[in-house]
Each structure stands twice: as structure tokens, then as C-alpha cells.
Design a protein around this nucleic acid. Sequence first.
DNA 1: GCGATGATGAACT
DNA 2: GTTCATCATCGCA
Length: 208
Amino acid sequence: MKRLGSDFFNVPTLVLAERLLGKIFVHREGPGKVIKGRIVETEAYLGDGDEACHAWRGMTDRNRAMFGPPGTLYIYFSYGCHYMANIVSEPEGAAGAVLLRAMEPIEGIEWMQTRRKTGEMTALMSGPGKLTQALGIGPALYGKSLLGDTCWLEEAPDIPHEMVGISPRIGISRSTGLPWRRFVSDSPHVSKTQSGPSAKKRKKAVGM
DNA sequence: GCGATGATGAACT
DNA sequence: GTTCATCATCGCA
């Protein structure tokens, strides 16, 4: 299985978001301990004109990885309980990254089930906080490159264009109109719109 | 089954 | 002090 190189990541964020669908994300935690998942859902975040992007107002201590070279991992701890994994795109210096929102378990499923405390396949990685837990992604991977030998992506066939779903991003309260979410429309592993993401809060944020 | 709410840490104003 | 790119659980129907 061929690893994807820097050329794969060195493209505009929206292109990368769609290109990532179907690819295999690999995390090698140690000898004989390899976890793999197939990416089925992503979201694009741009530093320019996107108020939902952490790098929208410029570089800070937290988001500096988003300004790094393409293929860098931007790990972010949120809500006091969950990590989120992003892949940096575009040339170095421009802020832009793709949030990994959901994957399909491929390998190392036993470890995922132990960490996630569930045996249900569609619940293992069907959400941004879930997949980082299943993969064992944490602060140790902040700023790491997918061109290294701890984490990388494996080549896989592109998803046919008619199978790629497009929708506004989920779970954010700013720039909600931008249709920058990409997902494999027939996959049972995409994040469920759980229970309506706090409709009241959203109304409040919109100003109703 | 569905929807609302609390948990919980770090960055930002 | 408030916000946040979330998830699991509790309450009610």
C-alpha cells in the first residue's frame, strides 16, 4: 500500500477536503500496534474569511500548526473532553486545514472497541471526538507530519463524484452558511446529526 | 425514540 | 467570565 506524499496535501483546502474521502488514515502507536480508518467525512476550515476557523484572526499559540507545511496534523482539545484532528493544507504560511469528522474502522478494531467502550462498529469513529479517541490521537501528535513514520495516509481509490455529499458544516456557530462539509453519502459511518445540535443555542447565536 | 442538558479544559475578550 | 469545530446521558413521551 502506497503512502501519500506532500503533493497530495499541497492543494487548496476545499480540494483536499474532497480528496481525503476514501483514503486510509494510519496511526502506528508501536511495534505491531497499528490502527487504520477510512476517511468518510471531512470539513474545510480556511483562515481567510471563515469566522469558524481558529486561525481566522491570525496566528495564536494554539493554532500555530495550522500555518505549518501541508500534511501537518493540527490537534485541538475541545469541550474539556475531546480531541479533534485536522490535516493542514495549502502552502506553508497560509492558514487552512481539513477537520476529520468520521471514519470507517479498518484495522485495530479491538483497540478501538476497548478505548471507545463499545462494540458497535458504526459508533467507533462516527464523529470527530470519537475517531480521535479510537485512533489514540492526542496532544503528543500536535504538529506532527503525516509524511513521518508515526502517522500517514495510504493511497485508495477516489470516491466517485456522485457519491460525495456536500452540506454546511456541523456544530459551529459562525459562518454556518458555507457548504464546506464533504462526506461519502452511502457510508453508515458518517457522524449522525445526533440529537438536534442544541437548536436553542444556535438560534441565540444567530440572533433570534 | 426524541430532544435538552451537563461535563470539563483551554483560549479568547 | 464566556465561548467552543463534542459526546453521553438523563428526562419525557
